[in-house]
């Protein structure tokens, strides 16, 4: 049981890194990235592919971070002229492209089979100790990601990003370089997401195109909205709550007598209803962003 709880803890921490990344884009800057899972995938595949060639995992993380960062910057540039909703659709399309490549380039990515037997970290230890060590490692990384995200959010740069979200024209007229600010925040977020992907692949010991489906992005959106769009602490709170909720509903068939098909439907439905409910009733989330009043609302 301890192992199982540690497992949920690890997942929650991995997701929290992802939520911090998405919050920087959506919550702080107002960039609706529907293709977040692509950055995660780049990180996960980099680690998994290099691992299968016996390259140390830290190299995989670095390669993943560089590739994802570059991809993030490119996507950020693509966003320079688009209204936010079309940019969102474009990111969704790009993520699907990444998934199709992962699915069809089987020589490289393992195709539909994916890449399995990715070695984890702390391989020398016994099972429970190893889970605990993995958990501790990821929590430390999460801590670093949190500090970075908070520094960005609360610094001068963060104020520019919020201004871009609230009033892009004003931001431009105040001579802020809007495009460069967007490109930088996308690159940073993509790097964070790739780290999340690397840990995910190592923990699950597997990565395949099935994990790059849009639902994965949607789950992270739910975390960020529930936590509170724009609030760094909120992103972590939301990630932990939604992970527990989503993973906990795995047990739904142990409590009530439903078919497996129905149970799978219920799990997804719960997430969808929670997100919709928050958007309708408590748009600001559990831990609301504070500085909003300082700027004119749209």
């Amino acid at each position: 049981m301890v192992e199982y709880l540690l497992g949920v803890g690890i997942l929650a921490a991995v997701y929290a890194i992802n939520a911090l990344s998405l919050n920087l884009q959506v919550g702080v800057t107002g960039l609706l990235n529907f293709g977040q899972v692509a950055f995660v995938g780049i990180g996960a595949y980099s680690v998994a592919i290099l691992d299968s060639h016996d390259v140390p995992w830290i190299v995989g993380f670095l390669v993943g971070a560089v590739l994802a960062g570059a991809a993030g910057a490119l996507v950020g540039r693509l966003g320079r002229t688009l209204a936010s909703d079309y940019w969102a659709i474009a990111t969704l399309a790009l993520a699907e492209l990444v998934r199709l490549v992962a699915l069809n380039q089987d020589g490289f990515t393992g195709g539909a089979q994916g890449l399995s037997a990715v070695s984890g970290i702390w391989t020398g230890m016994s099972t429970t100790a190893r889970e605990a060590a993995t958990f501790a490692t990821i929590v430390v990384v999460l801590g670093i990601a949190y500090l970075v995200a908070r520094r960005v959010r609360n610094g001068q740069y963060g104020r520019v990003l919020v201004l871009i979200r609230e009033n892009p024209d004003l931001a431009a007229s105040l001579r802020h370089n809007v495009v460069s600010a967007k490109v930088r925040v996308m690159a940073l977020s993509a790097v964070m997401a790739s780290v999340c992907g690397g840990f995910y692949a190592m923990y699950i010991s597997f990565i395949g195109p099935g994990q790059l489906l849009p639902f994965a992005t949607f789950l992270i959106f739910t975390m960020v909205v529930v936590g509170g769009l724009g609030n760094t602490t909120g992103a972590v709170v939301g990630a932990v709550l939604i992970t527990v909720l989503y993973d906990g509903t795995r047990f739904v068939r142990d409590w009530i007598d439903v078919s497996a098909d129905q149970a799978a439907g219920i799990r997804i439905l719960v997430i969808g209803v929670v997100l919709l409910g928050f958007l309708l009733v408590r748009t600001e989330g559990l831990v609301p962003e504070k500085v909003k009043a300082a700027h004119a609302r749209r």
Partner: peptide, 26 residues
């Protein structure tokens, strides 16, 4: 609440509709 919230909301609704249909029809 703005077009951004509406867009995320429509995505959530899409998921809710799909999950409900799966619940009812498998």
């Amino acid at each position: 609440s703005g077009p951004m919230i509406a867009l995320i909301g429509s995505l959530a609704l899409a998921i809710v509709i799909r999950a409900t249909l799966q619940l009812l029809y498998g």
